[in-house]
């Protein structure tokens, strides 16, 4: 019978596969070492926690974005959605849309942090659901639907807030942004828990398998009995939920919800996911990669700042890294295919 040798099972390929899984991680470690050598105080726990807190907001959204990109979709609306959810959370927390520039909580009129959190994630999930419906039922590409969402949600936010910020929350709510558990900032804990949960869902559940399958080949998934449309809608609900959660944490941290919050976040978020090795064509990627990708961006930003590199130059470097990371990924894959 055809006992032909499968040419792709050699040891060299396994090495490549290994690189594919750990490439971004190696890159991250190298950056940390370089920055530490340049300025040893970089590695101080205070700075490290600082970096982790910085990345936790976009990191949360990036977790949701990982689901979306795994299905070969994209969500450009997350920055605007973050602003909308933050504004809704603020309205609920303050008991009204009255703009205030005072940073102290006006005692007793609001509905408390839990209602604010709930409102933020429900609005986020609902927005994702509606976008998912538009993508699957109207057959409009995700890029277009969420590009529309990007302006719609920003407009809604400005309408609710009349353009201004809503500030001054309860200390109980602010704890979610500024609190510490031991030395660890609360946003970092929220991000870590969320990342672990997402990892478990994608790696160990039936739903996770379905997400990969839909991204790998939607037609084959459909002919294998998966309800492809439902899965597609669900990933937009998930990313919307995380945009809501991130909005809540950001508002708590800034003690204010800004109508202009989150502008450009979609690009940071997508960069984190893509640098982390998730393929824009779907089916390939992991939560671990996204966490590393988010950390890479955070370390770069912080490290460059630490060394007094201007924010203009930072943008240039991060853009270059993004392109390099994807080029590296492509190159690895072309080696595996051959």
């Amino acid at each position: 019978m055809s006992s032909t040798v499968e040419p792709r099972t050699g040891g060299g390929v396994n090495m490549t596969r290994l690189l594919m899984s750990f490439g971004p991680l190696i890159f991250l470690a190298a950056l940390v070492i370089i920055f530490t050598v340049m300025k040893p105080s970089f590695i101080d726990p205070i700075n490290i926690f600082n970096i982790m807190r910085q990345i936790s907001i976009t990191g949360l959204i990036a977790l949701g974005m990982t689901f979306v990109i795994l299905t070969a979709g994209i969500d450009l609306s997350v920055g605007s959605l973050l602003a909308l959810c933050g504004m809704v959370a603020a309205v609920v927390a303050k008991g009204g849309a009255a703009n205030t520039l005072s940073l102290s909580a006006a005692g007793g009129t609001g509905y408390g942090w839990f209602a604010a959190l709930l409102a933020a994630v429900i609005v986020g999930a609902l927005a994702g659901f509606i976008q998912g419906l538009a993508i699957t039922r109207l057959r409009v590409p995700p890029f277009v639907v969420t590009l529309g969402g990007l302006t719609i949600f920003r407009g809604l936010t400005l309408t609710i807030s009349s353009g201004g910020p809503i500030s001054g929350f309860d200390p109980s709510m602010r704890w979610f942004g500024n609190g510490l558990v031991g030395p660890v900032p609360v946003p970092v804990i929220i991000f870590a828990i969320a990342a672990v949960l997402c990892h478990i869902v994608l790696r160990y559940t039936r739903y996770g398998r379905a997400v990969y399958a839909v991204g790998g080949n939607a037609e084959a998934a459909r002919l294998s009995g998966l309800r492809v449309d439902r899965i597609l809608i669900s990933v937009y609900v998930i990313v919307g939920f995380f945009a809501g959660l991130a909005a809540f944490v950001l508002s708590a941290r800034l003690n204010s919800s800004e109508a202009v919050a989150g502008i450009g976040y979609e690009l940071t978020v997508i960069s984190a996911v893509v640098i982390g090795g998730t393929s824009l064509f779907g089916g390939i990627g992991s939560v671990g990669g996204t966490v590393v990708g988010a950390a890479l961006i955070g370390v770069l930003q912080n490290g460059l700042q630490f060394n007094n590199v201007s924010s203009y130059t930072q943008s240039i470097v991060i853009g270059l890294i993004l392109i390099l990371a994807v080029a590296f990924d492509r190159w690895l894959k072309s080696r595996v295919r051959r």
């Binding site: 399958a213 790998g216 998934a221």
Partner: peptide
Amino acid sequence: HQAIFAALGILTNFSVAALG
């Protein structure tokens, strides 16, 4: 185009119709 998930592992390809 209709049956396999080329980039995914054999295990996922195998169990996709019987996830239940």
